[in-house]
Design a binder for these strands. Structure first.
Lengths: 125, 125
DNA sequence: CAACTGTGATAGCACACCTATCACAGTTTT
DNA sequence: AAAACTGTGATAGGTGTGCTATCACAGTTG
């Protein structure tokens, strides 16, 4: 299930991309699985076809999916999605850690938060 | 010294805000210190006055600075800036750590990166 | 008085995102 | 074969945001 936050600053097509990548990464979407059609997803999310198309096309450019004219869009066999997700996630993590350092958060605090988040469940405060 | 990256996706006025907050947080700007005038900073950064004004006004709204008509803009006595910076930074850190967990980065990897970034200098790769 | 401060208002431009629409190509279903 | 589905391409227009340009006003400083 894909959910869009229209108020978010991150563009809708990027939200779609991220969530598809996550679905693949968690295994909910398997290699060669068919993605919802552009029209169907656009209809479900109450979006324009072009917006969904853009998300799909960028995913294809990144080799996460492949498309067959008239048939649909499918998850690539190669586990590129996983790599991309991990790479992006680590990139963002490094960025934020550097920023955290610059802004005065102690490394102990970082590790504390890390353990908290990883050992306990979600952050429900 | 404030540096603007025009290619960044984050708006210029936000870049200014962040860097001023950092200057205050690191102590380079002390309470009651005067910020560069809107016109001077705009001139230095080759920006329009309105852009700098917006950054300054938002900082004032957040109680980080106060302005005196005809005199200038000054750092608030109360260390609000520090709080704001830390709060925002920790909030983002938690968000990204949760996301890292969800996307399959191990806690060991997080701690490894943390130590790397905090012990060594910047990320120069 | 001149030159500096902040503030306010207005207008316009550029860009990115999104929508609307029509059209075409290929596949699947009936 | 026809209908209904798939992806794709092109074009146009709306909208919000960020930034600029400009003029004006208010207060402080030298």
């Amino acid at each position: 299930m894909i959910v869009i936050d229209p108020r978010s600053r991150t563009p809708i097509f990027e939200q779609i991309k991220e969530q598809i990548l996550n679905l693949i990464n968690t295994g909910e979407l398997q290699p060669d699985d068919k993605l919802p059609s552009v029209r169907q997803l656009a209809s479900e999310l109450d979006l324009n076809v072009n917006t969904v198309k853009r998300a799909y096309q960028e995913l294809e450019t990144e080799r996460v999916t492949y498309s067959l004219l008239g048939k649909g869009v499918f998850v690539s066999k190669t586990a590129v999605a996983n790599k991309i997700v991990l790479e992006n996630a680590e990139k963002e993590l490094v960025r934020v850690l550097s920023s955290s350092k610059a802004k005065g958060i102690s490394p102990e605090r970082v590790i504390e938060l890390t353990k908290l988040i990883y050992e306990k469940g979600d952050l429900n405060d």
